[in-house]
Design a protein around this nucleic acid. Structure first.
Lengths: 230, 230
DNA sequence: CCCCGGTTCGAACGCCCGTTTGAATCGCCC
DNA sequence: GGGCGATTCAAACGGGCGTTCGAACCGGGG
């Protein structure tokens, strides 16, 4: 463990490549040649490609979630929704970056990519990474939005994560569709837009609790709903 | 072209597998054995794996976008935001399904997956698939929300797509985090939640136009959180 | 009947994959 | 200086990849 340079070179290259082209599409030869290390180094230091992916994600996500909680703790007990949302989205978008080592964009892309590919080995890993953070933010938002149920808040937190991740992954498409007028590489603009959208979304009235819904669509084709008896 | 059975068997299997485990992670041998066709059939009918992916996406997306436009056209000229949002999200979530051939969940998953992996050959393809639909909905929303700029509406449309896609891909994580209280396989519930969230998001005040933003903050160390004016 | 375009099939092709191996090399404490 | 763990390295391993090829099969018109 004495020489961190190889390890971190591998982690850096993996973060980049996994973020750019995905986990399955990245080969160890690409990865090691970009990191300028020997092909066998990955298996020596991490054991396998899958374990490397976990290490990449852990390195990317852990400090973000810590910073989120730190900012949440710094808020007054009855903080407003905007502050809570900002505590949630600003760390991943701006990067945590104690010493400039991680570009926020890369970090977030790699998370978006790998979490989306969902190699089976990651499922439980990702859940435990987000359980605590999710719970804390759900509680804070519930305090700020007493009219919303816990499940509604969870839904909306999930939507917020999706909005962020989608934009970080597919920002180029947005830029192209708008002829560059929306520039997702402008993190400040992205941040302000996502915050305002999310604040509005959280403030919205909750949907009716599933019974008296309109549209009474005759076919609910998929939907094997366990449906809490509201 | 006389026998569509092989072609559609391949498309069905590909839709399923690309949606479940991703494009890069799906091998032609898996795919053809699940479709119960010969290995060479894919290259005979589609030319390559990449071309197959395009065909899968086209088959999945085109009818959804057509239905979106149909519903949008059916709205009154000055429709409210909720109706417009519903016209946008209901086709992909419920499925178009003229004759029951496509499960909405599968269709959407495959889109979420492949669009996220973004094999390079898809970039322009996806853009052209969404340019018209995006423009039409942007215009309709702009009419309903005269205080918002076009770019803000594009941002928010993008966020909405992300929220939908993320939930369809990573729904299991949400279910696990909430011990099943949020059930993303309940399409009705998902639909109502995403609509209410998006309506709130669109109704939100637009962010300040970038100039008077705070953000000049020299230190982004820990926790200086309530500096948002207002 | 046979021929023929369209389709299916098994069998390869060449390549690259993730991983392993065993020797070479390094850094350090005795 | 010699010994020794930790690390790096080149070279393979077996296997799976996407794709190609040529022969077999099919059904309908000459």
């Amino acid at each position: 463990m004495s020489s961190p340079s190889t390890r971190t070179a591998i982690l850096d290259a993996a973060e980049r490549l996994f973020g750019d082209i995905g986990y399955a599409a990245t080969s160890m030869r690409q990865l090691t040649s970009r990191a300028k290390v020997n092909l066998a180094a990955v298996n020596y230091h991490f054991g396998s490609k899958a374990a490397l992916a976990k290490a990449v994600l852990a390195r990317a996500i852990a400090p973000i979630n810590e910073e989120r909680l730190r900012r949440l703790d710094a808020l007054p007990v009855r903080a407003d929704v905007r502050s809570i949302v900002r505590a949630f989205v600003e760390p991943p978008l701006r990067g945590v970056d104690p010493e400039g080592n991680c570009s926020a964009e890369r970090v977030c892309r790699v998370f978006g990519r790998i979490s989306v590919e969902q190699p089976p080995f990651l499922e439980t890993f990702l859940r435990q990474q987000f359980r605590e953070v999710g719970g804390r933010f759900e509680a804070a938002l519930a305090a700020a939005l007493p009219r919303l149920s816990a499940t509604t808040i969870w839904w909306r937190l999930h939507f917020l994560v999706g909005a962020m991740a989608h934009t970080l992954r597919n920002g180029r498409t947005l830029a192209a569709l708008t002829d560059g007028r929306c520039d997702p590489s402008d993190i400040d603009a992205l941040l302000e837009h996502v915050v305002s959208f999310a604040v509005g979304g959280f403030a919205a009235q909750a949907p009716l609790p599933a019974r008296t819904r309109r549209s009474a669509a005759p076919r609910r084709g998929v939907a094997r709903s366990k449906e809490i008896p509201a």
